[in-house]
Structure formats: structure tokens, C-alpha cells
Amino acid sequence: MVPIRLWRLPKQDFSELMGYFRAVYRADERSPRSLHLTAEAIAMNPGNYTVWHFRRLILEALNVDLHDELNFLDNIAESNTKNYQIWHHRRWVAQKLGTDAANKELEFTRKIISLDSKNYHAWSHRQWVLQALGGWEDELDYCHELLKEDVFNNSAWNQRYFVITRSPLLGGLKSMRESEVNYTVEAILAHPENESSWRYLRGLYAGDTQSWIIAPQVSSVCLKVLGSRINFVFALSTLLDLLSHGFPSTQAFRDAVDALRVPDDNQTDSNLAKTACLILERVDPIRVNYWLWQKSKLPQ
């Protein structure tokens, strides 16, 4: 959790202001004066949800131009990017403005994401904007842009999956699969230690295990990474997954896995999956029990 950012204001002034706020709130005075007071109170403590609630009531009563409200939010958002209230308020305003707001909201989240590429609120807001207001056209490119910057960005991978499975402009997972597999394989080869890209690859075959085990790109990326003999944990666990689903291994895989053994691994096993588990137990000791479990469920 992040510490709350505050204006450096003497406690006295803050208490006084909150005193005024409580007075208009209790009197339910939905006036320009009250609106102004909520702005001041929010500036000092944007976490106070009651102030936001009251502000919405006032905005509705006074029929304020909500474009101004978005500008107001822009000004306080950057220093409060993890505040639930601000994001929720923003969604409330954007919803009222409708498709008009789509571009501004995509632009805005892009700005926040450029400051904090894994900001959960910003991503959540962006997904809502796409689904409720539209603007899917450039989204896949946007994901690519972010992954080019940081291929370990799990939020960007997630968004990519969101786009290929949900964009009305693309044909869905199956029709995107081939190009996405190629894209992902490239990302994996650049950084085989990247959990996100491996999970994305597996996700491209969600609900279609048959295609997963026969896909030549999948087995070949495993083999390439295993052959490099560094950062191979995810490649080896993927091979394990393939084997558990009936992937027919070849001598090339056997050789690649054998080459990963160290002299200490005196336990050799004719079973490839079992050897893979033995290696994973050694190279990923913090999760040794997980790999032991993987080994235990292999057919004896």
C-alpha cells in the first residue's frame, strides 16, 4: 500500500476546512460553495470517500459541465494514481459523457501507464473504456509499444490477451493464434526467464490441449531454450506440461535435458519427465515441493 500524499498543510487549517465541509454535508447544501469546498477537501485528502460522494450529488444537482470535471481530475490524478476514489469518480464522469470521452480516457490512462506501467487502476479503467466506450483500433499496437519497452510487463501481456480475445475488430483467439505464437516465441527467445511470456504462450492454447502438444513452434522454442542451458526453468516446466499431456518426446529433447544435469545429479532416470523434475528441484529450490509434487504425479 502506498503512503497517502498530502499537502503540507498545518493540521489546524485541515481540521477547519473539514469542519466547514461537514457543515454543508450535514445541511445537504448542494451549492457552488459546497462544490468548491469538496475540491479543497479532496486536494488535501483524496482518500475521503464521503467527500467524493457528496461532490457527485452536487455535480448532479448543479448540472455542471462534466468536461470541466475531467480536467479537475487530471490535475489531481498524477500525484494520486493509486487512489480508488479518483478512479471510480473518473469512471462515473466518463460514463455520463459517453463515447465522447473515449479518446480522452484512453489518452489519460496512457499517460498514467507511462508513469507507472503496472498501475492496476489505470489498466482496469482502460479495459472499461474499451468495452463501454470503444477505441479498440490501436490497442494491439499499444501493447506492442509497451512490451518493446519492457517485455516483462505482465500488465501489458494481460492487456494483449484481453485484446486478442475480446476486441470486436479481431477474429478472436483462434484466428489470432498463429501470429501471436510467432510474436511470443520471439519474446521468449529474447528473455527465456520471463514468466509472463511463457504463460501467454500457454494461454494461446487455452481449452485446446491437442493443438498445444502438436504445435511445432511450442516444442521448438522449448528445445532452443533448453539447448542454451541458461534461464531454462520455464522451458523445462513447459516441456513437463507437454509431456503430461502426451507430447511424444524425441531424442533431441532427451539429449537437451541430459545436458542440463550436473555431476551431483547422480540419480538419472530413463523417464524424461522425471529427469526434468529432478533438475527443477535443484535449480528452483524455493519451490522444491512443487516440483516434487510434479514428479509424484508422473506415471510410475
Binding site: 492496476y120 489498466w123 482496469s124 479495459q127 472499461w128 505482465n154 500488465s155 494481460n158 492487456q159 490477451y161 484481453f162 480475445t165 475480446r166 504463460r199 500457454r202 494461454g203 487455452a206
Partner: peptide, 14 residues
């Protein structure tokens, strides 16, 4: 999600 996790709304990151 496809990674087995859950997000805040459908499609939200685990």
C-alpha cells in the same frame, strides 16, 4: 484468467 488467477473484473490482470 488463463494463468489460473483472478482479476477485479472479467479480463482484469491476475
Amino acid at each position: 484468467n488463463m494463468d489460473g488467477g483472478f482479476g477485479c473484473t472479467p479480463g482484469g490482470e491476475s
